[in-house]
Design a protein around this nucleic acid. Sequence first.
DNA 1: CAGTTTGGATACACCGCTGTATCGGATACA
DNA 2: TGTATCCGATACAGCGGTGTATCCAAACTG
Lengths: 207, 207
Amino acid sequence: MTTEVSTRRQLTRDRLMAAATELFAERSVQAASVEEICERAGFTRGAFYSNFESKDELCLELVRRRGEQLVQTTQAALTAIPESGLTENTLDEVLAKVLALFDAGFSMDDHWVLIRSELRMYAYRSPSFRPALLEVESRAVELALAAISETLARQGATLRIPLDQLMPTMDSYCERARMNEILTGEPAGGWHQGLEHLLRALVVLPA
Amino acid sequence: MTTEVSTRRQLTRDRLMAAATELFAERSVQAASVEEICERAGFTRGAFYSNFESKDELCLELVRRRGEQLVQTTQAALTAIPESGLTENTLDEVLAKVLALFDAGFSMDDHWVLIRSELRMYAYRSPSFRPALLEVESRAVELALAAISETLARQGATLRIPLDQLMPTMDSYCERARMNEILTGEPAGGWHQGLEHLLRALVVLPA
DNA sequence: CAGTTTGGATACACCGCTGTATCGGATACA
DNA sequence: TGTATCCGATACAGCGGTGTATCCAAACTG
């Protein structure tokens, strides 16, 4: 059965990619050797080169999946907070929605903060990888932005900065805050409050 | 003459560090081999190991210098915009001062945007290097922050976010914006306008 | 239950980097 | 000008990673 074969193959691909993800965070994309990735996944390099043409290609696949996952969790987070016939135009409603987005979609767990940074740097150096990363990121940002701006519009709220500056501002702030927490060894979490402050500062409710 | 010797030594150290800086941006700290650094500087590895104990130590020295330079240019930028017996409490005055700070001190040229990111990741992985980087960065931030908050106070201006969140917010925004420009190949410069928007949004002038 | 295919393991040849130990030419000093 | 010192070059042994070519077992096929 073809599916059975494909299933097996897919399983080793998964394990390889999971191992790679870990090692990318630990050692960087470049420094993580194919050897090491295979070892951690419980394979030898034979398995790797049978499944991927190169580390570059694995990265591509990684980002592709990440993109899908991002889109899904984002949409899930959006629908999870229903239109809810609220009559009060509270800033808190907007906040909740946006914050949920960041919690769910733009996962700020240790792993992905490091990996995003790692992948950006890798993209800078790998011309073949760059467009893929840019496309995935921009798609995710667009999706989230659309949701946010719609929410804002419904509340009659406006922003103190251009709309297309909102996501970069918040995202980069969170990422930096998380990175700082990681580097200093502080417990994670401060970034969340920081983001809320930032949002409250940037959003203007109708008079 | 001892100074002559030292001068010579210092010169090769400089060349090695300059080469390292370039290569760190091009290939990453880890991927830049000692060999390559020496080659670009016009030396062999003998010179390197005669001057530095390891790549780690070179990084340390690099950051130390960067810190000094940062402090100097920041202070220069601050004194360059004199108290100027202005009577008008214009937001523009505050803006000018802060923007000048970022232009001068937190240099956002291609090189250093990449290297800062690079060093952060390196710090995450090198326990001996981490505290050094953190200290330099925090000193620079403190200095700039002190200057800014004093400026704000003099104008009677306040912020819509906690004071200690200002620098991370602005800095991370700029860095991200620059990085995006680099990745997409857009001409640099948009970040500057973005920063101005952000500042205008965050600063509140007295009624 | 043979025959075929698939997929991962093994073996091989090669390269580049590391760090140290040693050497030799230039420079400083009397 | 001779001598000591300094500092970068050279030589060497060793390691770890790369990518390919080949092999073998297990899983599918009819």
